[in-house]
Design a protein around this nucleic acid. Structure first.
Length: 730
RNA sequence: GCCCGGGUGGUGGAAUGGCAGACACAAAGGACUUAAAAUCCUUUGAGCCGCAAGGCUCGUGCGGGUUCAAGUCCCGCCCCGGGCACCA
């Protein structure tokens, strides 16, 4: 309800028609039904699952948020409210299964989507190529898997760092209550933590790991590095195992090898705890000195790395990964930064998640013929503590669909980004009651040729809907791999540094402005102030300027004109056709309507200037076209003027004027005369004058003669209809 | 730190490698008016020479380069905006 209300409010303000959206409101029961249908299809395929996890929590919304909805550590709806980390049982959609496709298919979007959106998505997906390497627990020999993108630095690994929640952390602290308690404190300190810098904390466990590449290291973990070449190559190196608060369980393997000499974070950690730093990479070209006091993180040449010493980084990575694979302790691996999409919300609005929990049968999907699960109406919304649906017993207490026993309905609702991920498909077939939409119909319409939206959805809506499209494709519902061929990201309205948005309120009150100046003026100003992909600065004086312009047009069309002798007819007609061409081209290519409007203004200026010299026939030819040219920008005024000049409306149904290239062409052109690239004079010549003739004319120009006097002309450049440039030597 | 955009008058912004600043806003001066509003006209990148007509020089973040010619292309920086970030 909140969504649809906001939408209608916005669109009514600007006079847009939004019939389709009203017909396919994502808040309607039928839409809930198909959301739930999709959810269950994904549940069947393991793409929707429930897990206990550390999740983002907005204390203002009292709900969980997806990673994508956390902006600078704060809630996307409450930009001042830091998001907290809570451990909760939540529903997720497995977008990570599609990470590789979402990344790979970005290449299909290039050219059609703005680069920065594609870059943001690439960053968000965050593909890293590297290797998983098994270290081994000293004593038991159990593998400890780490993920690294720099296996070439493995001879410099001086400890293993485990995430606090790594299973091995628990295992290695059993029987050691002191360590277990310390780990517990570490976990708690990470929960509810405000974003920002984290002081690196570590906890040394009473265990060692063996580096599968067998470099030598004193088992007590202290002292200087031993010269690799001088020791027994068969003895295992033992490196200490630590728990570190900055190692993420959710990324890679939940454990890392720390290489302090070649990673900034590891360097900081190992310096703090006095763990030895061993250089195993030096800059290629051997002369560059190693940076003092920090890690050398660039690629280089390996040293102290056994048989790999002397290899370049990329070659070493290849060989070492191959060796590890052969011996079964390593494999090349790709890791993504993107996490599964947390879709559980503890809000009233949103589609109820169609799952019922039975003490005997577990989580049971609501059978398809019982969809949609609708929101109860007798609900009290307090905005406090947990989902309002949990306080509606009639909603929550239901029989199990499988065994009929007492069961509990899921009270979380879906993130409304689920709705918006596929609404545009439903637009094509809004009344279908058999399927979300008919695949045949979709095959005809999709993909969307042109989509328009704000860049703030680059890694929200625009990545979710790509994901949904791929899921729907795998369900056999659509054939397209991508939902949108071309994306246009429009800028925002800014006033005194503050942006105008649906969730943050209006910096400028459109109702007031429309009241004062009319919708045409407001629209015109928005179009004229900047090209549409840029943010536009709202200025009242700019709005007044547009109002003045519209009045100027209105006055010209309305007033009585003197019958001129027609001496200006040709000039005005040429201008008219040039303007038609300009506006048409702007519409067809780059949508820079600010320049279209500038052209229309030029035409109006020209009309005022030539008014006295225009024949009545020319005038009555130009005016209707002017009105048509203005119609897309100022539809209300244009409609009014169209009627005033005795034409039949509606003006927006009248075909767009066509320009005559011959009429638009200048008969005479101004040719710039340059000497050594500097503007010295100009001449007017008939269009398409031959280069030789242009040069001859240029040489007769007194100023040019003056500049050429006594000089040798080295070369003459002639660009037809543009310029003549004399290159001289003094 | 990495990855994308940008940087042009007092302001918003124009310029397929070919007259930098279109079109507007603002400002100043003037006309009309008893006055105001509205409207119209003129000036408006900087500097210099000239009584004037006019002329000259500089100028698109900085430094180089390519070219007859660079806001535009290439190389190296600086600054601003945005995205990602203990992601190993």
């Amino acid at each position: 309800l909140a969504n649809i209300a906001a939408m209608t409010r916005q669109h009514r303000r600007f006079g847009f028609s939004y019939d389709w959206a009203r017909e396919v409101s994502t808040c309607e029961p039928e839409y809930y039904r198909w959301n739930q249908w999709f959810f269950l299809k994904m549940y069947e395929r393991g793409l929707a699952y429930r897990k206990h996890a550390q999740v983002n929590w907005c204390p203002q919304c009292n709900t969980v948020l997806a990673n994508e909805q956390v902006v600078d550590g704060c809630c996307w709806r409450h930009e001042q409210t830091p998001v907290e980390q809570h451990a909760l049982e939540q529903w997720f959609l497995k977008i990570t299964d599609y990470a590789d496709q979402l990344l790979a298919d970005i290449s299909q979007l290039e050219g059609g989507w703005p680069d920065r959106v594609l870059t943001m998505q690439r960053n968000w997906i965050g593909r890293s190529e590297g290797a998983r390497v098994d270290f081994h627990l000293a004593g038991s020999g159990d593998p400890i898997t780490v993920f690294t993108t720099r296996i070439d630095t493995i001879y410099g690994a001086t400890c293993i760092l485990l995430a606090p929640k790594h299973p091995l952390t628990a295992k290695l602290t059993t029987g050691r209550p002191d360590l277990a308690a310390a780990v517990q404190r570490m976990i708690e300190s990470l929960e509810g933590r405000a974003p920002g810098d984290l002081e690196k904390e570590g906890l040394r466990l009473d265990a060692f790991a063996l580096n599968p590449f067998n470099p030598i290291w004193p088992p007590d973990g202290r002292g200087d590095a031993v010269e690799i070449d001088n020791v027994n190559p068969f003895s295992d190196e033992q490196i200490p195992i630590w728990v570190a608060n900055f190692v993420l369980m959710e990324y890679g393997a939940g454990a890392i090898m720390a290489v302090p000499a070649h990673d900034d974070r590891d360097h900081e950690f190992c310096t703090k705890y006095g763990i030895t730093i061993r250089t195993v990479i030096v800059p290629a070209g051997d002369t560059a000195p190693l940076p003092a006091g920090g890690a050398f993180t660039d690629d280089g040449v390996l040293v102290h790395s056994g048989p790999y010493t002397g290899l370049a980084g990329d070659e070493a990575r290849r060989q070492m990964t191959a060796y590890g694979s052969e011996r079964g302790f390593a494999e090349s691996s790709v890791t993504y930064r993107i996490r599964d999409w947390g879709v559980s919300r503890q809000r009233y609005w949103g589609t109820p998640i169609p799952i019922i929990y039975c003490s005997k049968c577990g989580a049971v999907p609501v059978p398809e013929d019982q969809l949609p699960v609708l929101l109860p109406l007798d609900v009290e919304i307090t905005g406090m503590g947990g989902s309002p649906l949990q306080k509606v017993p009639g909603f929550q207490h239901v029989p199990c669909p499988r065994c009929g026993g007492d069961a509990r309905r899921e009270t979380d609702t879906m993130d409304t980004f689920v709705d918006s991920s596929w609404y545009f498909y439903r637009y094509c077939d809004p009344r279908n009651d058999r399927l979300p939409f008919d695949p045949q119909t979709i095959a005809y319409w999709f993909p969307i040729d042109q989509y328009i939206g704000g860049v703030e959805h680059a890694i929200l809506h625009l990545i979710y809907s790509r994901f949904f499209t791929k899921v729907m494709r795998d369900l056999g519902l659509v054939q397209n791999h991508e939902p949108v061929k071309r994306l246009f990201t429009q800028g925002m309205v800014i006033k005194d540094g503050a942006k105008m948005s649906k969730s943050l309120g209006n910096v400028v009150d459109p109702d007031q402005i429309v009241e004062k100046y009319g919708a045409d003026t407001v629209r015109l100003f928005c179009l004229f102030a900047a090209p549409p992909e840029k943010d536009l600065d709202w200025t009242e004086s700019g709005v007044e300027g547009m109002s003045r312009f519209l009045h100027r047009v209105h006055r010209f069309v309305s007033k009585e004109h003197p019958a001129g002798d027609g001496s200006a007819d040709r000039r005005v007609l040429r201008k008219l056709h040039q303007v038609i061409r300009k506006v048409t081209e702007d519409f067809e290519s780059r949508w820079h309507f600010n320049t279209s409007l500038a052209a229309v203004m030029e035409l109006v200026n020209e009309l005022y200037q030539s008014e006295a010299d225009l024949s009545p026939a020319a005038l009555s030819g130009v005016v209707p076209t002017l009105v048509l040219l203005l119609a897309p920008f100022a539809p209300y005024l244009s409609e009014e003027l169209w009627e005033q000049i005795g034409r039949q409306g509606p003006v927006l149904r009248v075909p767009w004027p066509e320009y005559d290239p011959a009429l638009a062409a200048d008969e005479e052109v101004e040719v710039v005369l340059q000497v050594n690239g500097k503007l010295r004079s100009k001449l007017v010549a008939p269009k398409d004058t031959a280069p030789t003739e242009l040069e001859r004319l240029a040489r007769t120009d007194p100023k040019i003669q003056q500049h050429l006097d006594g000089k040798t002309v080295h070369k003459v450049i002639v660009v037809t209809d543009k310029l003549v440039n004399f290159v001289i030597r003094s």
